[in-house]
Design a protein around this nucleic acid. Structure first.
Lengths: 348, 348
DNA sequence: ATTAGCACTCTCCATCTTCAAGTGCTATCT
DNA sequence: AGATAGCACTTGAAGATGGAGAGTGCTAAT
């Protein structure tokens, strides 16, 4: 790649113009079109020269010899760097977002509405996730007997995520035994991370293998039935607006693959966690998703983590076509991410 | 419509052959093709005569003058009546289904897996719903204090559906108050339908408006915050395999509309409840969904209700193209519906 | 440095032709 | 009388052909 970054102000201006024209028109942009819309009266020929340079530098491509130019992934990255942080959220969007999200207490509900509103404002796919991982701090557990050998376990984490899980036990436990067990856990382990709680309970069962203790027996029974599993990951992954990806040109086979991937919410979660991390708090724009998943060619991820202290507790993102309104979407994601952060921290 | 039902055995055989050929090939079927594959050596000319009659009777259509014939909705209905109840579930499917579904205690989990496995065996969209309506019988409630003015309500119904709901109260209640309230409700109202419980509690609050009673105060607080709302309907509607609807020919605009509808799970639920009722317990095949929703042209619904006694407590269905393997799908739906019924009744 | 001019390339579109499949009708066969 | 063979006719799909339009690269002139 020759002259990678070698672009002066003239080139930059033209590149930006090309990208914006392409985003709004969707068609390869030629030198004449550009010369007409550009206020400085540059002639097509001049522009062509610049374009040739930009092709050399890897910012533009030609679908075929005699078509206009199309921005490459590199061009989009450059463009996003240029504009980032410049725009303001339109009042319309702002009120749409706050009206949709206000009055949610429940994390699940918040996530659902977030994914929806993201898909609306971006015309892409909206994703919202609360990490259900066992890294979360325990707030509270409750067990209730639902029938012979059947127990409902409810685990609430500090961040406000609720897990319920119906279990079948080996032995039948009385409700009083269950209450004793939950009291014990709540009294001793509130604030610990869920996996530490699990490990510690496992240890105590092992060590104090005393027959005498009815409590330990109950704990063992519950422990072995997986009462503290916080998995059930799909419950905290919300994906909305998939229909936005159905556009004219898409090749059918690819589209099908794409939808299939988006239906497996677990994979969407992997995608986000691969690209978002807590080190940086701002919105991250990833151009060129095909490196991670080939069916995501031509798609872009605009996402942000939501954190409590140093830990990532959730994330939200828009997945959309490379041709999208970046300013708009970035500001929207950023705004909602702040709300999300606030919600999580208020619960913590 | 002349000669509606006037078809003899010869016509019927040919009609069936046409439908099956069309289902497997997807292309209009002509007289020559049919004459070749049909064991009885009928000549194309003869078949053409019969075909002409079938067109008159409303069973076939021609895309244009010189193309083969295509079955109409009426033909599919006829076909389904003919074959229904004939086929057996293939061992492969049977084991796929039972392996996927065995070991689920949790209704939500069962629904999720059901929708998935339905989409797999049918190559259509799998839908599974547990009716979350307030008609369900109450098994158990539990309240737990999550912070200042913040309470988590867990409502479990007899059929095994768990609702959790985070609420913000006007007043701050102690955990002991919450326990008293939940004990009161569980002791007095277990087995009542949820809406009756709500009505009765409303009445008691109203009548016994005694200041003296701390319990009534707590109940009132909880009642007014909607502790007993079982809505949150989307949580119990599972739709899977939407990507199966992306096939070659589909017109893009229509496909987009279709996906949009399927994303609004509430609308899918309406569709099912419109066509399935408890009066008949067998699998129902609805051909011609466009009457209810225009974007569903060329789609078929194959569904069954799941009942406890006389009441509908859930339903499951496949939504797929008119060109589908009816025998196969019908038997699969029927088999899973039995499992679903069993699961619900075992909990009841 | 910028631009005008020009020959060249490539896609898109409309038109035309050919081809195969299928039909309806009529005359013929059993 | 029902079944069939033959035949003329219709129609869409698949190429082939030929501008028109948009765009390019290069060279020479400003």
């Amino acid at each position: 790649m020759p002259n990678q970054g070698q672009i002066g102000p003239r080139e930059r201006e033209i590149l930006t113009a090309i990208i914006e024209t392409y985003i709004s028109s969707g068609e390869p942009v030629g030198s004449r079109t550009l010369s007409r819309q550009n206020k400085d009266g540059l002639s097509p020929a001049t522009i062509r020269n610049v374009m040739a340079d930009l092709v050399d530098a890897g910012f533009l491509e030609q679908p075929h010899t005699s078509a206009g130019r199309v921005p490459t992934a590199q061009a989009y990255r450059y463009y996003v760097d240029q504009i980032s942080g410049k725009a303001l959220l339109s009042p319309a969007d702002q009120s749409l977002i706050s009206e949709t999200l206000q009055g949610t207490v429940d994390i699940q509900q918040f996530l659902e509405r977030t994914s929806h509103v993201l898909s609306l404002v971006s015309s892409g796919v909206g994703v919202a996730i609360a990490s259900a991982g066992p890294q979360n701090a325990l707030e509270h557990v409750h067990f209730s007997r639902q029938g012979p050998n059947k127990v409902l376990a409810v685990v609430v984490t500090k961040s406000g995520v609720v897990h319920d899980r119906m279990m079948r036990l080996q032995r039948d436990l009385e409700q009083t035994d269950l209450d004793t067990a939950s009291n014990y856990i709540n009294a001793n382990f509130r604030g610990w991370t869920v996996d530490k709680v699990k490990a510690e309970i496992g240890r105590r069962i092992e060590h104090e293998r005393s027959e005498y203790d009815r409590l330990m027996q109950s704990l063992k029974e519950l422990y072995e039935s997986g009462a503290l599993a916080t998995s059930e990951p799909a419950k905290n992954i919300f994906v909305d607006g998939v229909s936005n990806l159905v556009v004219k040109e898409e090749d059918h086979e690819r589209l099908r693959e794409l939808l299939k991937t988006l239906e497996e919410k677990q994979r969407v979660a992997e995608l986000l966690s691969a690209y978002l991390d807590t080190r940086q708090e701002a919105v991250r724009v990833v151009i060129g998703l095909e490196e991670a998943m080939p069916e995501m060619r031509n798609l872009v991820l605009i996402g942000a983590p939501a954190r409590v202290g140093e830990e990532m507790r959730g994330s939200l993102a828009v997945i959309g076509p490379t041709r999208m309104d970046y300013q708009h979407t970035i500001t929207a994601v950023s705004y909602i991410a702040q709300l999300f952060d606030k919600l999580l921290n208020e619960n913590a």
